[in-house]
Amino acid sequence: MITFDHVSKHYAGHDGPGAVHDLSLEIPSGEIVVFVGPSGCGKTTSLKMINRLIEPTSGTISIDGEDTRKRDPNELRRSIGYVIQAIGLFPHRTVAENVATVPHLDHWDKQRIDTRVNELLELIGLPPRDYAKRLPAELSGGERQRVGVARALAVDPNIMLMDEPFGAIDPIARERLQNELLRLQQVVRKTIVFVTHDIDEAVKLGDRVALLSAGAKVEQYAPPAELLARPATPAVTAFLGEARLVRRLALIHLRDVRLQPVNGSAPKTTVAIGGTLRDALDAVLRSPDGTVAVVDGDRVAGVVDGTVIRLASQ
């Protein structure tokens, strides 16, 4: 668990973008917590105070109850994975050498490093045979970002800090990376603090979302579904923008929805039961009579229409 206890960061002279005023927040272990907010709201500053790349002016940040100021900053950073938007792979080192950075700093023996590097490259879907010896310049943007994630995971840290890691990647590759991160999280179960200005990304990835406004003021700190359903302040409503309820549909799985029983013959338009209410809404709009069969393989599990969606979304 990471705890922010009345943490502030003030900059001499100007106290505009990036400043943090009295932030208190708890980040539970094993969850993805997303800091989201407009640019300059202090979300990146807050993130960088966790691994002491930025030192707070006042207040305390502790990890599992231990004040981070009691630890050597370099040793602290080696124990926390760190991924940034620009990735920052070392261009003169191969993929394998990049991934081995922190194990190398921690003086692992060569055998152990090689084993770990291969394991990680397999995990992120870049077969070591093809990728280990390549230089970053020989990778696509998405591949580079995956190597950045593997590098951050190298010594199996409990905490990962990710600062807009997918911000500079095209939308299709970004969505794939988001899905991969969620898949990876099923396996590794890290405490991940993720910074983004993209509310869709926040809602998709976060177990909890902290919506921040200027000075890292917490407007709302809640699971995404609650954030979308019940915005706590006008600032949250404004940041969520239009269509927040439609967005929220993507968070509700059809398996959890009370469906209507099949009455007579099932509707021709179908949606798979693995989908979300958003997929169902799309199917309803496509359906000639506004009803859709939810199918589980060959079986029809039930029927969805506008009323079902409306009831389920409340």
């Binding site: 691994n51 370099n74 602290l76 080696r78 938007q85 620009a86 990735i87 070392f90 700093l105």
Partner: peptide, 23 residues
């Protein structure tokens, strides 16, 4: 040198000297 490379070096726990010498 790309500032992002230095930031990631420091963010991963290299000392100032290590970042200078190896990156």
């Amino acid at each position: 040198v790309d500032p992002a490379v230095i930031e990631s070096a420091r963010g991963m726990g290299m000392t100032r000297l290590q970042a200078l010498l190896s990156v």
